[in-house]
Amino acid sequence: MDAARDRCVTGIENLDNILNGGIPRGNTVLVTGSCGTGKTTMSMEFLVHGALMGEPSLFLSVTEASDKLLKNVIPYDFFEDSLIKKGKLIFIDLPVVYELFGMTKGELDFEDIDLLVKAIADIVRDLGIKRLVIDSITSVCYQLRTEEKIRQFILKVGKSLSEYGCTSILVSEISPSSERYSLYGVEEAIADGIILMGNLQRRGDLLRTLQVVKMRGTNHSRAKYVLDLTPSGVLLVPLLKGGSI
């Protein structure tokens, strides 16, 4: 199974080890967690490494304006401004796309979904995008409202991206107490992979954690890891159990 699929090496060394070499190329992965768990930072690093490896990478920002986002990103040791200038790392604010296609009403209908999927697919095809992040899919889902429309959007966008060999991350926001991996429950069922990020409280300490719950097309560890966001990128170590059962 592992050898059959080409890998999209995330460049996050420990994560690639957990995934047995990287995300199977073309997969749509849900990166999910509550606020402050590092979802955006990790997704951004995935794109920066891709751009450094020569793969055009696109960040579709839904909740935050790209320029504000860039200011708040950790100053990576490996980041190069030229990636943006050369068009290897591209930022697009999704609300601009909505406006361009006249999707200004609060709720998108099935026709809008087709238009939006086509718009994203056209950008990916025209710019040769190999890595895409949508931050966040939850905000897109707010405008879709029904499970049926969310299902249709994710299925269609995932299929289009996969056809172009584009590996995508859909950032999903959930509440800390959520028992599901996504707000509507639909996103997690359709995605090829789920990476769950969380805050673990232990004896008064708050640890950031990461766990690969599912990843189609590869064997992977399902253990929980503790992560740190550093200028050298995301670092991971196993969560210590201390003999607990």
């Binding site: 300490d205 640890l207 740190d228 200028p231 670092l235 210590l240």
Partner: peptide
């Protein structure tokens, strides 16, 4: 590191310095 109980964070900081 906030506390000596955060052993994973100690490992992570050592890993970071090793990498740097």
């Amino acid at each position: 590191v906030e506390s000596a109980t955060m052993l994973e964070n100690i490992m992570l900081k050592v890993q970071y310095l090793m990498k740097k």
